[in-house]
Amino acid sequence: MTDLRADCTSCVGLCCVAPAFARSADFALDKPAGRPCVNLLADVRCGIHADLRDRGFPGCTVFDCFGAGQHVVASFGGKDWRSAPEVAEPMFAAFAVMRDLHELLWYLTSALARAEARPVHGELRQALAETERLTGLAPAELVAVDVGAHRASVNAWLLRTSELVRAGDSGRELRGADLMGRDLRGADLRGATLRGAYLIGADLTGADLSRADVIGADLRGATVSGARLATSLFLSQFQVNAARGDAATTLPPTLRRPTHWPE
């Protein structure tokens, strides 16, 4: 998992330049793709990093490239889009594809860590190997990868992993459910299918999400104080960063407790 963590010191601020931002509750301004954010300093550090939430940029605090940034920079021989403008456009295009592939690597690695998924470990390893092969392509080949088709093939085995992990639970089917702002305090969501569910602003205080499949679930502004997330399936760092928890919230050992959560 260490290779799938963002190392901003080995990147050149790609997440602050390549994507487009739209003025919203997550971003205080509009920023077109390929243009540096106004808060990006000359040394590619964020000038308001410590105050992003207070300054209207909570979306920046929840973004996670899964280590794609440093991988892309390395694939361009360590070049910087500022001093080598000729690599800017291809570097930004490669970053978008690499980020998606690294996210799949995170899910596949998470799946392989589940003993319940042993019946499909062989298929998961094959999918992992193929995804790693794609991340090793030259930049020009990388941008031609059909990420959608590859994601669909990987997702078939992630779904099977989910079924195996949740087999012992009579989990609720809440795939894509609109649960925005819902009072789910103390809810029994063990083994629930929350894939793509909208949990924005929901109150999950003390809820039990053990073995719940939360891939793609939107936890922006959700309260997870005291919630049991230690064995939630496919939980990612950016989902945790988007939520509001506390010292009583349990997390998988592969994830970090966000600094904005109270002790």
Rank of each mutant, 00 (worst) to 15 (best):
R228A: 08
A94R: 00
P32K: 04
H71P: 01
Y198M: 12
L159T: 13
A94D: 00
T249I: 05
A144S: 08
A167F: 10
L52A: 12
L40S: 10
D213W: 04
L14M: 07
N155S: 05
H49C: 11
L204K: 09
D246N: 06
L229F: 15
R211E: 10
L14F: 02
P139G: 03
S110F: 02
A144F: 04
E163D: 12
K31E: 02
R151Y: 07
A68K: 11
S170I: 12
V147S: 02
V72W: 08
R151H: 11
A94M: 01
A93I: 15
I48T: 06
V165W: 04
P36T: 09
P19E: 02
F21Y: 09
C46A: 14
L184M: 08
T109D: 04
K79F: 09
H49R: 03
A192M: 05
L164I: 10
L189D: 06
G206T: 11
A187W: 10
D100W: 01
L128W: 06
A242N: 08
R185W: 02
A207K: 08
T223N: 15
P253N: 11
A84E: 09
S232N: 03
P85S: 05
P253T: 09
P19N: 09
V240R: 01
G77F: 06
D169F: 15
H121N: 08
R99C: 03
G201Y: 14
D246W: 06
G13N: 04
D218W: 15
G176M: 13
I200P: 05
R118P: 03
L14Q: 14
D43H: 05
G206M: 03
R166M: 09
G13T: 00
V44T: 13
L137F: 06
V120K: 08
E89R: 01
A144C: 14
D213H: 13
P36Q: 08
R45I: 12
G148E: 03
R5V: 14
I215R: 14
S232G: 14
A88T: 14
